[in-house]
Simulated assay, not measured.
Amino acid sequence: MKKYLVQFKPFLIFVSIFFLTYIILTILYKFYLNSYQVNDLDDISIFVGKNIEALLRFFDYNVIVQKSSQNPWLEIILNNLFLARIIEGCNAVSVMILFVSFVAAFSGKFKKTALFILFGIVSIYILNVLRIALLVVLLYKFPENNKLIHDIIFPLIIYGYVFLLWIFWINRFSKYAK
């Protein structure tokens, strides 16, 4: 048994750090979400909605992002047409938690790891805002492709980007890059 523990030590360390980080961050995020009332939307999701609205207005779209009067989501109205809603899951925090957990598990030097995590979180946030704004425009122009756009293309964008960040991290900065 000891032979296998020695042989698989790097893998076991990776898995342990990954799951420990993931569990701790997920629990902290759940505490954050539980601080809101049942029909309230969290501040991160509201901030995402404000950024989407500002971005679409910057590109001259007639857009309103407003809190639903009875539900915990934001409604996105483009040219007086309700197109989408932003729920808590749209804020990409769960994707950020997954990203951070992986980078921590393949950590390198503390400063590089911390800076890469910060860069990753900020870039994932920005990509997510761009992604949702583009989603709204595409839903307006191509409503018949709703399922394809929302369920396939847009998850591929965010998860594909995170995967590329992971590959870059492993090859350039992690302690396993050697």
Results as ranks from 00 to 15, higher is better:
residue 1 M to D: 04
residue 1 M to F: 09
residue 1 M to S: 09
residue 1 M to G: 06
residue 3 K to R: 13
residue 5 L to C: 04
residue 7 Q to P: 00
residue 8 F to N: 11
residue 8 F to Y: 15
residue 8 F to C: 04
residue 8 F to L: 14
residue 9 K to L: 11
residue 11 F to C: 04
residue 13 I to M: 06
residue 14 F to K: 07
residue 15 V to Y: 05
residue 15 V to P: 03
residue 16 S to E: 02
residue 16 S to K: 06
residue 17 I to A: 03
residue 18 F to R: 04
residue 18 F to M: 04
residue 18 F to S: 01
residue 19 F to C: 07
residue 20 L to C: 13
residue 20 L to R: 00
residue 24 I to N: 03
residue 27 I to T: 05
residue 30 K to P: 00
residue 31 F to S: 04
residue 33 L to G: 00
residue 34 N to Y: 10
residue 35 S to K: 07
residue 44 I to N: 04
residue 47 F to I: 12
residue 47 F to Q: 08
residue 48 V to Q: 01
residue 50 K to M: 08
residue 50 K to W: 09
residue 51 N to G: 09
residue 52 I to N: 02
residue 52 I to H: 10
residue 54 A to I: 07
residue 57 R to D: 05
residue 57 R to F: 04
residue 57 R to A: 08
residue 58 F to M: 12
residue 59 F to Q: 05
residue 59 F to S: 13
residue 60 D to K: 11
residue 60 D to H: 14
residue 60 D to A: 04
residue 61 Y to D: 03
residue 63 V to W: 05
residue 64 I to N: 01
residue 66 Q to E: 15
residue 67 K to N: 12
residue 68 S to L: 05
residue 75 E to L: 12
residue 75 E to I: 11
residue 75 E to S: 05
residue 76 I to C: 03
residue 77 I to L: 00
residue 77 I to A: 01
residue 78 L to N: 04
residue 79 N to E: 14
residue 80 N to H: 12
residue 82 F to K: 06
residue 82 F to G: 02
residue 83 L to W: 12
residue 84 A to T: 02
residue 85 R to E: 12
residue 87 I to W: 03
residue 88 E to Q: 15
residue 88 E to T: 15
residue 91 N to M: 12
residue 92 A to N: 11
residue 92 A to Y: 08
residue 93 V to H: 10
residue 95 V to W: 03
residue 97 I to W: 13
residue 97 I to T: 05
residue 98 L to K: 03
residue 98 L to V: 10
residue 98 L to C: 05
residue 101 S to M: 05
residue 101 S to H: 12
residue 101 S to F: 08
residue 102 F to E: 00
residue 103 V to Q: 04
residue 104 A to H: 09
residue 105 A to D: 05
residue 106 F to V: 07
residue 106 F to N: 06
residue 107 S to R: 10
residue 109 K to Y: 11
residue 109 K to E: 14
residue 111 K to P: 00
residue 111 K to S: 01
residue 113 T to K: 07
residue 117 I to V: 14
residue 117 I to E: 00
residue 118 L to M: 11
residue 119 F to C: 06
residue 119 F to R: 10
residue 121 I to R: 03
residue 122 V to N: 09
residue 124 I to R: 09
residue 127 L to E: 07
residue 129 V to I: 15
residue 130 L to P: 02
residue 133 A to I: 04
residue 137 V to F: 07
residue 137 V to C: 08
residue 138 L to M: 14
residue 139 L to I: 06
residue 140 Y to A: 02
residue 143 P to G: 10
residue 143 P to K: 13
residue 144 E to C: 06
residue 144 E to G: 11
residue 145 N to L: 15
residue 145 N to Y: 15
residue 146 N to W: 13
residue 147 K to C: 01
residue 148 L to P: 02
residue 150 H to R: 15
residue 151 D to F: 09
residue 151 D to V: 01
residue 152 I to G: 01
residue 152 I to Q: 14
residue 153 I to C: 06
residue 155 P to G: 09
residue 156 L to N: 12
residue 158 I to F: 09
residue 160 G to T: 11
residue 161 Y to D: 03
residue 161 Y to R: 03
residue 163 F to V: 07
residue 164 L to V: 13
residue 164 L to Y: 11
residue 165 L to C: 07
residue 169 W to V: 00
residue 170 I to P: 00
residue 173 F to W: 15
residue 174 S to Y: 01
residue 174 S to Q: 09
residue 174 S to N: 07
residue 176 Y to N: 06
residue 176 Y to Q: 06
residue 177 A to M: 02
residue 177 A to K: 15
residue 178 K to L: 09
residue 178 K to P: 12
